[in-house]
Simulated assay, not measured.
Amino acid sequence: MAALHDRPPAVIAVAAAVVGALVALVLGLLTFGVQATAHPDAVPLAVAVDAGAPPPLRAVADELAGGDAREVSWRVTTPDRTRDLLSRQEVYGVLELAPGKATVVLSGAVNPSGTQVAHQVLAGVAQATGAVPEVVTLDPASAAGRTAPLAGTALLWIAGLVAGAAFTALARRPTRSARLAGVLAATALGVAVVAGFFALWDRALPLTAPVLGYLALVGVAFALVQGALLRLLGLRAMAVLGPLYLVAPAVAGQVPELIDPVYRALLWSWTPFRFSTEGLRALLHGGSPDTAQVRVFAALAAAGLLVLLLPRQEGQPDLADGVVDVGVDQADRLPGAQRQHTA
C-alpha cells in the first residue's frame, strides 16, 4: 500500500484539508464552544432580610425564593450570614433588603464570571423594588487579582510543557534522575516566573508560603504528568498536552452554572485547571484551598512520578529516548548484518 506522500498531490491536498477541519472541530469544541453556549442555570444567589423586617420585605424575599426561574437559585438568609455564605462561595452575591434601602453584596474571592452575573441580577431585582442599590464588595480584588489565578495556572502548564517537550526532543538517553531533575527545575523556574508576574502586576498580591507552596504543588504535578506522557508517547504526547492548555481559559474561567450541561460534564467536571484556579484564588484572598483541590494535584503528581520511575524493559527503549542504535556501519551506511550478507 502506497504511503500518503506517494499519492497524487490532489489527494494529499484533500487529506490535509480534512486534518485541518478535524483540528478546528476539536479546538472549537474545547474553547469557543464553551463560551458560545454559556447561559445562566441555577446561579446561587441569596436575599437577606432581618428577622423583624416589615411584612412587605419578607414577602419580596419569599417571592424570590419561591420563583421557578431556572436561571437563578435563590435562598433566604439574614444579613449576619452574608459574609459566611460568600466566603464559602455557597452563593455568588447577596441582596440585603431593609426599609427604603437595598444593598448588593459581592466578594472579590468569587470567580469574576459568577460575580458579574450576580451583580446584574441583584441590581435588577433591587431596582424592581423601587430602591437605588448600593454595591458593597467584600475582599475587593484588583484587575490583577482577578486575572492572577487563571494566569498562574496557565503559565505553570506552559513552563512544564515546553521544558518537557524540549527535553524529549534533545535528550538522546535520558535517565530517571535526569527526568526528575528536569521536573524540579521546570517547577522552580515556573513558580519564579509566576511569582515575578504577580509582584509586577500588583504588589498587594500576597506571595506567602502557602501561596508559593500551592504554586509549587500545581507546577510539579503538571510537570510530572507531562513528563510521564512524553515518556510513554514521545513528542506525539503534544497532540494531547497542547490542546489541554486551551481548556484552561475556556473552562476554568467560568463558574459551572454558566457552562452548558454537556460541557460541564465532559470538560469542567475533570479538568485540573479549575481546581488550581479556584484554590489559588482562595489563597490570594486570605482563604485556603479545599481538601479536594490539594488531593487532586497530589494524586496527579504521584501518578506522574510512578510512570517516570518505572524501569525500562530490556530491549524496549522509551519512545522519548531519541534515536535508537540499529547497528549502522559508518563506512557504507548499511546495517552490519546486511553488509556481511552482500559480501
Rank of each mutant, 00 (worst) to 15 (best):
A21C: 13
R75G: 04
P40R: 00
R83G: 06
L27E: 05
V76N: 02
V34N: 12
V60C: 06
A69N: 14
P54H: 12
L25W: 11
A59F: 05
L25H: 12
V47H: 02
V34K: 10
D41V: 06
A16D: 06
A69P: 00
Y92G: 12
L29Y: 15
P99M: 02
G100L: 01
L27V: 07
L97A: 03
P54T: 05
V43P: 01
L64Q: 11
V26W: 04
P79F: 07
D41N: 15
G33P: 07
A61W: 05
V72E: 08
A53Y: 10
L95S: 07
A36C: 09
G28Q: 09
D68C: 03
A21E: 05
D80V: 11
A51C: 03
T77Y: 02
V60I: 14
A15V: 15
L85C: 08
A65N: 01
R75N: 03
A42F: 01
T78R: 04
E63P: 00
P54C: 09
L25E: 09
A46I: 04
R58I: 00
R88T: 13
A59Q: 13
V47T: 03
A15G: 06
G93K: 00
Y92M: 15
P44H: 04
Y92S: 14
V76G: 02
E71P: 07
A65L: 01
A42D: 13
V19E: 06
A42W: 01
D84K: 08
P56T: 00
A61C: 08
V23C: 13
D68K: 11
V49Y: 00
H39A: 13
L30D: 04
R81F: 07
E63S: 14
L45P: 06
V23Y: 07
F32T: 15
G66L: 04
L64S: 10
A65Q: 05
P44L: 08
L86D: 05
G66K: 02
R81L: 12
L95T: 06
A16R: 15
L85Q: 14
G20H: 01
G52T: 06
H39W: 09
V26I: 14
G20W: 05
T31P: 03
E90K: 12
P99K: 01
K101C: 00
L22W: 14
P40L: 03
K101N: 10
G52K: 13
W74V: 02
H39V: 04
W74I: 03
T37I: 09
D62A: 15
P56C: 00
A61M: 08
P44F: 10
P44T: 01
E63D: 15
A59P: 01
E90R: 14
S73L: 13
F32H: 12
A61L: 09
L97Q: 04
V18C: 14
V14Q: 13
A59G: 09
A15L: 15
A38K: 11
T31N: 09
